[in-house]
């Protein structure tokens, strides 16, 4: 008889993670496509403002990569859902796995995707400005905020954290839908239903929740908030998918 192979959790998670980096390449190509689409939308400017008196009018057209970040957040949300779907999950189950390693390697993959998504989102905001400068009538440029090095570091990290937060949310949504397929319809209906119901009573759910993260000006507190939330979302996903049957 063949001697039994002994494996440990960390080793399997590592192998699965590396496997995902190689086989989920489509996740990243879709990121490139989406960010380029977002760039196209942003080239026309994200707003304008100005003023003047008698004989002059100052007009400032604003350009920022905000839309790229929003699209990146959408991308990670969708991919958070996608990697819980049958096709992705069962790729793991053709090799050595259990539900825990499957989830852990997915979370590592989401972290990597967030890292790549966050950094490229900020970088393509810069690409946007370079394209503006070279391919469109070059008005003199005003940089609007002085951003110090530490603020750049915070900004990039915050972008990564935002992306990870929404990736975790997608992962939970995906896990719920896998648990109970009808949630694919119930969840969005319930979400928008509650949203509008509350809005009619002047309770702005999205704004309220949004402010909790978007209006937080302390980087440390922001980090704590995002990591805690993501952690809760992921632990719930892990718990509910731990009895998920595969190859149904």
């Amino acid at each position: 008889m063949m001697s039994l192979v002994n494996v440990n959790l960390g080793n399997v998670v590592k192998k699965q993670y590396l496997f995902k980096l190689r086989s989920y390449v489509g996740v990243f190509t879709s990121l490139v496509v989406l960010q380029l689409i977002a760039l196209l939308f942003s080239l026309g400017g994200t707003g304008g403002g100005g003023g003047g008196s008698g004989n002059f009018h100052v007009m400032i057209n604003y350009y920022s990569g905000d839309v790229v970040i929003i699209f990146t957040i959408l991308w990670v949300f969708i991919n958070g859902i996608l990697i819980t779907t049958k096709a992705y999950r069962e790729d793991d189950f053709s090799f050595v796995t259990n539900r825990l390693t499957n989830n852990l390697s997915n979370i590592l993959f989401l972290l990597t995707a967030s890292l790549v998504g966050g950094v490229t989102a900020i970088a393509s905001g810069i690409l946007l400005k370079v394209i503006r400068y070279f391919f469109f009538n070059a008005e003199p440029i005003i940089t609007t905020f002085s951003i110090s090095t530490i603020e750049i570091i915070y900004g990039v990290l915050a972008t990564i954290l935002y992306v990870f937060l929404f990736g975790s949310l997608g992962y939970l949504v995906g896990s719920l839908v896998q648990l109970y397929k009808k949630l694919a319809i119930i969840l969005p209906v319930a979400f928008f239903g509650i949203l509008f119901a509350l809005a009619s009573r002047d309770i702005m759910l999205v704004e309220g929740v949004g402010e909790f993260y978007f209006k937080e000006t302390s980087f440390l507190l922001f980090t704590v908030k995002v990591i805690t939330t993501s952690g809760i979302l992921l632990i719930v996903s892990l718990t509910i998918s731990n009895r998920q049957e595969v190859r149904l």
Partner: peptide
Amino acid sequence: FNSLTVSAN
């Protein structure tokens, strides 16, 4: 179910 040893072997 969820055994890594079983999955590996």
